[in-house]
Write a protein that binds this DNA or RNA. Sequence first.
DNA 1: GAAATGACCACGA
DNA 2: GTCGTGGCCATTT
Length: 108
Amino acid sequence: MSTYDIIYQIVRQIPKGKVATYGQVADLANLYGKARVVGYALYRVDMVSDIPWHRVINAKGEISQSPSRYGGDNLQRSLLEQEGIKFNTEGKMNLREYLWQPSLNVDD
DNA sequence: GAAATGACCACGA
DNA sequence: GTCGTGGCCATTT
């Protein structure tokens, strides 16, 4: 158990068709200002995990990616499109529409 | 134990 | 609203 696991819990709670920013997840994980830790967690997460990492994006409403990722950027976008999310020419999405509104339940 | 890494955010312009 | 810089902190090696 560690800060890491908390992040997974949050990401798992992201409903389908919605997306959350790192800052949002970090805040929910009680890690306000430590968004980098969230990024690190998703960086270590595997696609085979139960974590919908593709629903986590940066504050700009865009998909972030790692330089050493297996072209996951393309995959992630496809997954989000399957969720019903559409991207504009800039490859961004409408956060006003798709941004997940987290619940206030800190714990189960 | 210390240095390096990391998918970022807040802030100022 | 975007872009550039600083800094936060945990995880990894």
